[in-house]
Write a protein that binds this DNA or RNA. Sequence first.
DNA 1: CAAAAACGTTGATGCTGATCAATTCGCAGG
DNA 2: CCTGCGAATTGATCAGCATCAACGTTTTTG
Lengths: 232, 232
Amino acid sequence: MRIACSQCNLRELCLAVGLDDADLHKLDELVVKRKLKRGQQLYRAGDAFEAMYAIRTGFFKTDILTEEGLEQVTGFQMAGEILGMDGISNDHHVCNATALEDSEVCVMPYDQLEDLTRDIKSLQQQFHKFMSREIVRDQSLMILLGSMRAEERIAAFLLNLSQRMRVRGYSASEFHLRMTREEIGSYLGLKLETVSRAFSKFHDEGLIGVQQKHIRILNADGLKALLNHAPS
Amino acid sequence: MRIACSQCNLRELCLAVGLDDADLHKLDELVVKRKLKRGQQLYRAGDAFEAMYAIRTGFFKTDILTEEGLEQVTGFQMAGEILGMDGISNDHHVCNATALEDSEVCVMPYDQLEDLTRDIKSLQQQFHKFMSREIVRDQSLMILLGSMRAEERIAAFLLNLSQRMRVRGYSASEFHLRMTREEIGSYLGLKLETVSRAFSKFHDEGLIGVQQKHIRILNADGLKALLNHAPS
DNA sequence: CAAAAACGTTGATGCTGATCAATTCGCAGG
DNA sequence: CCTGCGAATTGATCAGCATCAACGTTTTTG
């Protein structure tokens, strides 16, 4: 039942990268598992920040409710990725994290994690790298939102998902979208109709296969080519 | 010449928040000052990551060259803010940092800073908060880019600048833009003409005074009101 | 199992902001 | 002082995506 970090198949993706057995054991001791059903929220905007979460299995989205009451998705997270880093800044979460399928996370109480990173240098380094990676990831999205047109955004989105599936040992060419067209659109700064139309267009052009949420990448190079062309 | 953190008027904004004298002294020892002329680059995308930088005086932009060769501005930074956090993720900087006016930074070699944050708990906490704040900041920009229309973005931009000026003890209602219309547009995902038009419109409506790069906020509530209205 | 709700697709139309273009302004250098 | 160049303003036109709307499909639920 209780799977230790040392036996976790994700340890090379997760905070545990590069830790020796003794240190892995220390990390183990502060980790608690938690299961979530599809649709359940891991935390909500405004909640006190108490822990960070490593995704063991499943798929999440993070979103923010804007002042106008619109939901905007800020990210989709899968196994090995860390949730909750936004909460450090002022001791409260600024976004909601919702499971898009039945999922399991490793809860890492932040005060204990903080102590442990002062103790273990390589854990500290890994922790900083994860935060920095989140910053870099957000900046790529800023570029996507600031400079790409609709079809480029969607091609980039599909390629990104595909790439992350590959890293986790899943098929990079065939996968199931866990989110709705509306959530994709919200993430990419587009309307759901635009997402749907782009999928249909890519389908017609033989770039992808689409059947509802089931996606096949038929011509990855073709998708990549869409990104390199000047916007107009 | 050499101004210690303990005597720095920015210590309440900077990493040094909440450190006692002894710890401030330790931080002092690793900091080196560096001056930059307007237009000079602090680091470039691809440079090896060696240090983080606290801005003592001046004004910076960070930008990324996209694959298509377009420059996109990812942020504007002023006194007390930290530059370089993007570099931790893979030991190389992913963006360029350029001084938009004559500036001075405190160079903090990263390996030493890392050691010191393991030594000083409150410095560690402050460091994590800065990284988290950067994540939150990037996410607000994602929301701006993903869900606001042109005039809302520009109102938000002006209010944000104004607010940051206030925190630093400058006038919140009258300031000098250090960047061009094109740089503002790049940051906000708009074209320079759109920025110019919005400035003119706000001017005509009595919300702001504009004379080239000199801005006066005449009706801050009016600008805020632009943000709260539904997009259509 | 039937009905309803949620999700997705496709078409027609219109608005926002990009694009193209001309002019003015401000400033640095000969 | 005039010249030349980058920056900014303003106008006219156009295209991309949003919006509105109708319909089809899948999933959920009692």
